[in-house]
Design a protein around this nucleic acid. Structure first.
Lengths: 151, 151
DNA sequence: TCTTGTATTGAAAATGATTTTCAATTACAA
DNA sequence: TTGTAATTGAAAATCATTTTCAATACAAGA
């Protein structure tokens, strides 16, 4: 899909949810919708100010939270305990994440339903969430001297 | 294995690693080795002071870190972003975690090697870690009015 | 057993991430 | 165009975690 169309779709979603479309939100939406990387709040803040200099970090947090509620981005957990935000992939996908730059490769992994179903009945737990995530270093970051590129 | 033996084993491990066996450490080791639940630092702090009243939160953090280095406990991530610590299960196990009380049911899930191998060669990533975790509510916490029991 | 050096401790302060508060601003419906 | 409620950014508050540091206590050696 055309990047501009995606951005407009996200902004429409915001508006449908009763939110106003503002310059800070537009800047954040453009960033998040356009990045194949999972970005941390500070990263969004820094990149976002290129587009909208007055952008505040608080607004970044608030907007990311709203986008997550709408299912447009998801919050991903990293091994070091930090969080990043990622545009949601189509369909349910599992994630392979570069711990260096945050680049994400969604992959269609095993269907976990049979497994969760079995474990649920074995243990009596009500299972409501699962994580299948792989972590590693992407080809670009594996190069000794590499230049990160945003695409 | 007898609980006391496990505790002694952990203390031996600490000593072998050049650490001194102290009262605060003993209290924390007894807690962690004996709990089937994943405990947060504050929880360890509160429970630990029952045994060793002078225990400080800083010591809790430091001891948990050391136990993790020795592979005796592992740090688990929860959906809400908090962390808990859990005695390490025998063999490589995946975790089913109660988000209410932290009770953990390790389960022998699929062997992920074939999957990670395929994804690695498909993407060019060097994969070095994976998470397969299920979250839910344990039988005890599903009861409307339940009393948490530590066993 | 006593001594001594060093690892360990807990309190306080520092840090880093995230949230709350609040007065000023701004989108947008009427 | 205007009124109003949503939104903003700064500052302060909060929460988890780490660092600093002087006092203490383990355990190796005399």
């Amino acid at each position: 899909m055309d990047p501009t169309l995606i951005v407009n779709h996200w902004l429409d979603q915001l508006q449908s949810a009763g939110c106003r479309v503002t310059a800070p939100r537009r800047a954040i939406v453009e960033l998040m919708a356009g990045s194949p990387r999972a970005l941390g709040p500070i990263e969004v803040y820094d990149l976002g100010r290129a587009e909208h200099p007055g952008l505040g970090l608080v607004t970044v947090y608030r907007t990311l939270e709203k986008l997550e509620e709408l299912g447009l981005v998801e919050r991903v957990h990293l091994p070091d305990g930090c969080h990043r935000y990622l545009r949601t992939a189509d369909g349910h996908q599992h994630l392979l994440l570069c711990t260096s730059c945050g680049l994400v490769q969604p992959f269609a992994g095993d269907d976990l339903e049979p497994l969760t179903g079995k474990v649920a009945s074995d243990t009596g737990f009500a299972i409501n969430e699962h994580w299948l995530q792989l972590f590693g270093t992407c080809p670009n970051c594996r190069k000794p001297i590499s230049t990160l590129s945003e695409s």
